[in-house]
Amino acid sequence: MKRLTLSLAALMMAVAAQAQVSVKDAWVRATVPQQQATGAFMQLVSAKDAKLVEARSPVAGVVEIHEMAMVDQVMKMRAVPGLELPAGKMVELKPGGYHVMLMDLKGQVKDGDMVPLTLVVEGKDGKRQTLELKAPARPLNAAAQKDMSQGGHGAMKH
């Protein structure tokens, strides 16, 4: 009974959190055996001004929020302390921008795996909420939508 109450409480917390911040199209790039790192991508919308401050996953030893920048044709990837989520604005974590970096992977992430992710979001009032989600792994060669818009995904012959 106690267990049920607890899980109900957890469920309600998750629902409450989801009302604050919604996550769409979350996915993780699959890996090959012995590859130790990969990235998770998603779209976030927060109802109120908030900040993504932490991400966790049982599949990785270290999880960070990274920003990718191109400077003179050199790619630089850096951990950022947080990612601002302005009220009502969609913030996209996608190739060419931000991603959740999963490092020290405990095993191969296979295409189709459901990767558990925990996101910690902090509101302006300093209150933290956690969001639990499962992001499907897409093949290593899955392209982001944006990369295809330039040219011709539609025109491509398969």
Partner: peptide, 12 residues
């Protein structure tokens, strides 16, 4: 290979 972003994009 641990590059989650530009390397897959380049190889795709």
């Amino acid at each position: 290979t641990q590059c989650p972003d530009v390397c897959p994009t380049a190889l795709i």
